[in-house]
């Protein structure tokens, strides 16, 4: 009973259900992106939304589990990047707590900060576990930057940051927009929201 009580006090049942829905929104976000044929990922809208509504622990959990479930369902490589998704949720939650999702510009800057921190975690995984590539189109950028004299570490860092910055800024702006538009009835009880609503 002790463990359960501890978990219950950390994350309420309502937030637990929100995290489950956010994981699915992350996965379905990829399908929406495919439909729009955008050169971004849109796979962390749910994670950032949970982080803004319920804080960094819930956000980190949503990100971590998204990649683990993705790995279980379709792509085992995604599971290796689960720590990156965790960092996205944690950093977004901390930024939300600091009030950096209140205005459009703050949300855009938050997207850049999230991209920076995810790069710090993604680069060592990509370099040491995968030799700098992932089998995606961005590998051409790694190859090009290596050819023009960048180290492998530098090439991967520039590529990861470059390919994520637009995605995370767009994600942060969408979440900012959603949070402003959601009816009060739906978001009552999410304690972290007061830090993000102007």
């Amino acid at each position: 009973m002790t463990t359960n009580t501890a978990t219950a006090s950390l994350i309420s049942t309502r937030v637990l259900v929100l995290i489950a829905a956010a994981i699915v929104i992350n996965i379905v976000g990829g399908q929406i992106n495919d439909a729009l044929r955008l050169p971004i990922f849109l796979d962390s809208i749910g994670t950032v939304l949970v982080a803004v509504l319920a804080g960094p622990i819930a956000g980190g959990l949503a990100g971590l589990l998204t990649n683990l479930i993705w790995g279980l369902l379709t792509n085992p490589v995604a599971a290796a990047f689960a720590p990156v998704a965790l960092v996205i949720g944690v950093v977004a939650g901390i930024l939300a707590r600091l009030g950096w999702f209140r205005t459009l510009w703050q949300a855009a800057i938050s997207g850049v900060v999230i991209a920076f921190f995810l790069t710090l975690v993604a680069v060592p995984i990509q370099v040491y576990l995968f030799g700098g590539v992932t089998g995606a189109g961005s590998d051409f950028a790694v190859a090009y930057l290596s050819q023009v004299g960048q180290s492998l570490f530098g090439s991967v860092a520039l590529t990861v940051f470059g390919s994520n910055i637009i995605d995370k800024v767009v994600t942060a702006l969408i979440v900012w927009l959603l949070v402003r538009q959601l009816p009060q009835r739906l978001v009552t009880g999410y304690d972290y929201l007061k830090f993000s609503r102007a």
Binding site: L18, I174, L178
Partner: peptide, 13 residues
């Protein structure tokens, strides 16, 4: 994107 994502998120909430 918001026109596609907002209804999905609202229903999820």
């Amino acid at each position: 994107i918001p026109a596609l994502v907002a209804p999905l998120v609202t229903t999820a909430l």
